[in-house]
């Protein structure tokens, strides 16, 4: 059940997309998100969709795996769709009681839905095809110019690495504690909202205690290995941009140009 969450999960592989420098992938993903908001017609979305499809095919991540990550956001998707379709004012094409659907509403709702789906798939491609560790390395390097102004880029990257590392551990821990309390007669499945929320206390308290214990152990282990922050720290894998990274970057630039021109033209 809890194990099914794919958002932020890594899909092991050695495709071209996997091998790209994480910095290139992060910037490309950010640009992709910006492009999604520049685009406002079907041709534009078709271009974005095609590019995303190409990336998925090259990455060899199975489509079914990606789609599973969409499930948790289905609710948000329907919610925004419903809000847009009923709330936008304009030329009414259908109405029932106080509910009106307008032509503009349909347009905005459909576009927003497509935008959201592409956004989620696009950004999950980044985490699916990049090892969490190289992802945080990439973020650290991209943020490092800010270190000059006192921005703790290394610390932030380290916190993210640790957080990512402990997601599966904490899920496992939650599963174990839930089972243990179920064995003592806990009931998480029936009753009203208040009763269910209350039923979670016996899970949350031990989970917090565990989280603190794990954090303390880890801090101790890091200190025992002389961790002292980012200053002067060398790395095992130096990031170096290769030819394929420049090519990917050039492609992304062309893609951005096309999207901007297309949006201007129509």
């Amino acid at each position: 059940m809890i194990r099914d969450i794919t958002l932020g999960q890594y899909y092991p592989g050695d495709s071209l997309i996997h091998k790209l420098d994480p910095r290139v992938k992060i910037i490309a993903t950010l640009l992709f998100i910006i492009e999604l908001f520049i685009v406002d017609n079907f041709i534009g979305f078709a271009i974005c969709g095609a590019v995303l499809a190409a990336v998925i095919i090259v990455s060899k991540v199975p489509l079914s795996f990606i789609m599973r990550g969409l499930k948790p956001i289905l609710f948000i998707l329907f919610f925004t769709f419903a809000l847009n379709i009923f709330m936008v004012k304009g030329e009414v094409i259908w109405s029932w009681g106080i509910l009106h659907i307008t032509k503009e509403g349909v347009r905005i709702a459909v576009f927003m839905a497509i935008r959201l789906v592409l956004l989620i798939i696009g950004s999950s491609m980044l985490t699916l095809a990049t090892k969490p560790l190289s992802l945080t390395d990439g973020i650290e390097r991209l943020l490092s110019p800010l270190a000059r102004f006192g921005f703790p880029s290394h610390e932030i990257a380290m916190m993210m690495t640790i957080a990512l590392r402990f997601i599966p551990t904490l899920l496992e821990e939650t599963d174990k504690i839930m089972k243990a309390q179920q064995a003592r007669g806990a009931d998480f499945e029936t009753g009203g909202l208040m009763k269910r929320a209350k039923a979670l206390i016996p899970v949350l308290v031990p989970l917090f205690v565990s989280a603190f214990r794990i954090a303390q152990d880890l801090a101790m282990a890091m200190e025992a290995r002389c961790y002292r922050g980012g200053d002067g720290r060398t790395r095992m894998h130096e990031m170096k941009l290769k030819k394929r990274d420049f090519i990917a970057f050039a492609l992304e630039a062309i893609f951005l140009a096309i999207v901007i021109i297309e949006a201007r033209m129509f």
């Binding site: 064995a183 003592r184 007669g185 806990a186 206390i201 031990p206 205690v209």
Partner: peptide
């Protein structure tokens, strides 16, 4: 069923209340 490391499932404010959790259920 007593799980491995069962002390990690303790959660109540007092020992008596924690032991009472099962019977209460």
């Amino acid at each position: 069923l007593v799980f491995q490391y069962p002390e990690y499932q303790l959660f109540e404010v007092s020992v008596a209340k924690d032991v009472a959790y099962g019977p209460k259920n």
